[in-house]
């Protein structure tokens, strides 16, 4: 299992899209820092990765989001795609240890 981390907003960077294009079904994706904006359920047009995320999730990819970064930015869980699991720093460490390697998209 590879852990992909994304820390750039999907609204001004192609980073999330670049990541999703090569994510495999066994992998995990973690959005943190400004990357958390990529989990918003109500974004539109080219900024929305909803369908891609849903498709990957259906094939087994796990999606996580760092709670502290959401809280800091005023993003409530209700605004996010329900596919995302909120995790804390300790969970992040556990994921990192579990992963065969980490690809950080920045």
């Amino acid at each position: 299992m590879l852990l992909h981390t994304v820390n750039k907003s999907a609204f001004n960077s192609g980073t999330l899209g670049d990541c999703l294009r090569v994510v495999a079904e066994n992998d995990a994706v973690l959005l943190f820092e400004n990357g958390v904006y990529g989990a918003l359920d109500n974004s539109h047009g080219k900024f929305s990765h909803r369908e891609h995320i849903q498709k990957l999730s259906a094939s087994g990819t796990r999606f996580y989001i760092l709670q502290a970064d959401c809280e800091a930015r005023g993003l409530d869980a209700s605004a996010l795609l329900p596919i995302f699991t909120m995790i804390n720093d300790a969970d992040f460490v556990t994921l990192a240890v579990e992963a065969s390697a980490i690809q950080s998209w920045y």
């Binding site: 590879l2 294009r21 090569v22 495999a24 066994n26 065969s100 390697a101 980490i102 690809q103 950080s104 998209w105 920045y106």
Partner: peptide
């Protein structure tokens, strides 16, 4: 191609980006 990129990522022991 994309599948080969995925395989390369999956088989690496450490990735530096």
């Amino acid at each position: 191609d994309r599948t080969q990129v995925q395989a390369l990522l999956a088989t690496s022991q450490a990735i530096l980006s």
